[in-house]
Nucleic acid binder design. Sequence first.
DNA 1: CAATATAGTTAGGAAAATCTAACTATATTT
DNA 2: AAATATAGTTAGATTTTCCTAACTATATTG
Lengths: 136, 136
Amino acid sequence: MKNLTDIISVLSNLFGQMEEDAKIQFNFSDLTHNQLNYIEHISKLGNPNITELASVLKLSKPTVKVAVDKLIGKDYIFKVQSDEDRRSSHLHLTEKGKLINQMHDYAHKRIAETLGRRLNQDEFNSLVELLNKVLD
Amino acid sequence: MKNLTDIISVLSNLFGQMEEDAKIQFNFSDLTHNQLNYIEHISKLGNPNITELASVLKLSKPTVKVAVDKLIGKDYIFKVQSDEDRRSSHLHLTEKGKLINQMHDYAHKRIAETLGRRLNQDEFNSLVELLNKVLD
DNA sequence: CAATATAGTTAGGAAAATCTAACTATATTT
DNA sequence: AAATATAGTTAGATTTTCCTAACTATATTG
């Protein structure tokens, strides 16, 4: 019987493995790890501008600008100039860019399946209820 | 009430955030993300040789050799020539390198704490029991 | 034991990722 | 309206990451 910390460790590996598998499945072969990371952050942040993104990633604005330009060139994101402040542009995911979210969703589904498989209906319900309580 | 897939999604973000925090805490400021990734793989694989590591990372051997040399220079890993096959060397983590594992352990402990905090003793025990069953 | 295969290395080069300094355009403050 | 601040860009340079081709040393095989 493992304690919770050890369980988390196993879960963490499982999550990592499933995300890894999903990346292979979705085959974003024209993206480096780093570029995927940029897209994930843009997605998570909503529609950040360059300054926000640079701040979160702890990188300089020129660095982020260059990276963003490459991703625009590859049709993963696009810029929309702000009405509020015409100096600024917000970054949006293209349809192609949004596939990254589908990839994560796919990984999460597979993880949920894997976890559910070993439990009967009552146990499954208990687990979901407890986790809901924990994360509420 | 969230379904399990949505819960996994929230958990995945929590895990990511906690690992991120731990990285900041442990302050491996002389390592790039990539270099951290090499060390994590070396740790996970036991004591791989260059060929194994290159194969798992899907990179060429010269690429991995150069990266490994840098990490040796920074005292995160060292090489031990194999007795079985004197062409080959196994990669080991130095004490400094092993801190990476402590960093993960720290993150996992904090996650476990976070999860446990919202439950009473009985609920906590149920959760641990269910997760043990799932991951057994 | 000669031929072939394997582990690792060296060399040379290209692309990715990052920086600082200096610039333009728009906003804000005095 | 002038001075200052902010968002983004451009230019130039450095470091990191990665490759292929060719090499050395050791092991395995016909």
